[in-house]
Nucleic acid binder design. Structure first.
Lengths: 334, 334
DNA sequence: CATGTGCTTGCACGCGCGTGCAAGAAGATT
DNA sequence: AATCTTCTTGCACGCGCGTGCAAGCACATG
């Protein structure tokens, strides 16, 4: 790189024959500056390749225009969808996103501290590992301007939660299964510790029980990973009673659903959906692939990010909970 | 959040009975400070919950400890692998990563400018849309401290390129195919404009021709997307001569390979690898799924990121090219 | 032409910390 | 005990820009 010498507002001011502050005004919307000087300054700035230093601006204004996106894992492609929406929409509104890899639950404190050191306007926690207990004990969390829990309902004090209305979602799934004539669901949930925070198994059973009197069995998978789900299902399917006990597998997310489908088809030689139906959650890209054609529930990620932007732009820090409605995407797995 | 009042080095200094600069020294490795005062300061800092403000530090030292990761798309799960390694390893060395969504090639300039505004120590471009022509015409690129092109060879002046040794990779693939007895490869490449930068088709054919005399046909897919690849292969397979003309499909990446496998199996009713073999590139998680069991080539992402860290830590800005060796992962698709 | 109003512009001060130098403290030397 | 080192510590200045206020200006009014 050749011209690394940073060019400041001072330089532009000198070249345009105005003061440094006038240059700042030219770049500030709704600033009191005459049309003529603004145009002149902007033109000079363009020639010189000047852009305001957001770093210094943040320091002065105590507003970094930075949000931290803290992820607990990067295995689920759904994270990529979230990241895409998040970065794109947030950028459109003038923020930049710093992505922090917490590297597991133990790293949460460190991640939060790192966010604070960068003066982020908000830290967004994305991942089931970040449960309310962890958040309520993390003192770092108290020191952030805003703490948002994304894609999971959080009742933690001082925390802002933006998520899909899972209660409604699970009710819709229960209804769809019922409409398809299935009566023997098996709920395949994630790791017991993490899955609890999502409450999907619980919500599904609440809805299912209200319709059919008795709950569905729940089996936990050791990790949100297809191969783990694959082996887990093989392990329990026969023990539960095989086809006599299960005619549809409801999964906490698509990753598990993919593993379940592979297990049913390749491991047990069954047909989906003829023998056993499968329903997922998230609608990852792969769910639409002809090999899977998974019926799943799509979270309203874009709306959720819009909600985040609103919270970013609002001055106050309301300890709020926003639940948005997604939609069931019916394909051929049920 | 309750205690939003930022606590500065000044506060710690007062509480510890030293000057602000001594506090700074306590946090600086290899600083000239006595063991005793450092321990005292650090203890006070911990009690008060003080951590140095990296924002202000960056402003003062002209070093933000920030790198920008600029992505052109978020559809390929391989990006997630890169992101995970990138954030994790870079964090371990004291940097934080800001993720920028360029939203297509037109957004590259804007993304670069955004990176500059944040005073990043380096901007890393990840994606085939960022070709050398674009980079050489982008004046913003000249103003960054370091510009790194990741996972693609770049010969652009002033640019640092870190990538997998594709020449060797394609030679290994050609050798494997040959060893498996296949003699009629079809190369399924990405969009013509983007694929050119990767040069994989070209490199494969160089190797193939040297072994068997004549090159493999090359078919371009309109997008790096499975369904696009699916339809494209269906479209051209018969026209090329079907099984008489093709006994293995070599794909520019796994996403295309997945689409190709689906097309061969579900679209054409063929068997993989019995009728036609498939080889991919990247080794995404899905490649290991039993439904695909894709033979593919794994790029040495971790080593590549380590190389990036080395470049970050080295003061100079060598316009360098680093090509690292990956490895072929043989599964059952060939 | 004098006065008042509203729009522009300039500026002191501060955001939190790093750098380099000089003053001070502690230990070593004769 | 006096002096010299070496280690510690304090400080002026600056990084690039935002905020709030006051001075400057143009124009309209009487």
């Amino acid at each position: 790189m050749l011209e690394t010498d940073t060019i400041t507002a001072e330089d532009v001011a000198a070249a345009a024959g105005v003061s440094r502050w006038t240059v700042a005004r030219a770049f500030k919307k709704d600033a009191s500056i005459s049309r003529k000087t603004r145009d002149k300054v902007l033109a000079v700035a363009r020639d010189l390749g000047y852009v305001p230093d957001l770093h210094a601006a943040g320091l002065a204004a105590d507003r970094s225009n930075l949000v931290a996106l803290i992820f607990d894992d990067f295995d689920n492609p759904h994270k990529l969808v979230i990241l895409e929406r998040m970065t794109r929409i947030v950028q459109q509104h003038g923020w930049a996103a710093i992505t922090i890899n917490s590297g597991g639950p133990d790293g949460a404190t460190e991640a939060l501290q790192s966010a604070r050191q960068r003066r982020v306007d908000a830290a967004v926690m994305i991942g089931t590992e970040f449960d309310d207990e962890l958040l309520s004990t993390a003192t770092e969390a108290r020191r952030l301007k805003k703490l948002v829990v994304f894609a999971r309902e959080s009742l933690c004090k001082g925390t802002i939660s933006i998520h899909c209305d899972d209660e409604r979602a699970m009710a819709e799934i229960a209804e769809h299964i019922t409409a398809c004539g299935r009566r023997r669901p098996l709920f395949l949930a994630g790791p017991e510790t993490q899955s609890a925070g999502l409450r999907r198994a619980e919500l599904f059973n609440a809805s299912w029980t209200s319709r059919h009197g008795s709950p569905s069995p729940i089996v936990h998978v050791g990790a949100y990973a297809s191969d783990t789900a694959y082996h887990r299902l093989l392990e329990v399917f026969g023990a539960l009673g095989g086809l006599n006990a299960v005619d549809v597998v409801v999964c906490e997310n698509d990753i598990i659903a993919i593993g379940a489908m592979d297990a049913l088809r390749h491991g047990l030689g069954l047909h989906v959906p003829q023998d056993v139906g499968v329903v997922g959650f998230d609608d990852i890209t792969l769910a639409a692939a002809p090999s899977y054609a998974l019926t799943t529930y799509r979270q309203p990620i874009s709306s959720m990010v819009e909600a985040l932007v609103e919270i970013l732009e609002s001055g106050e820090t309301p300890a709020s909970v926003t639940a948005l409605e997604g939609r069931l995407v019916v394909r051929s797995s049920l």
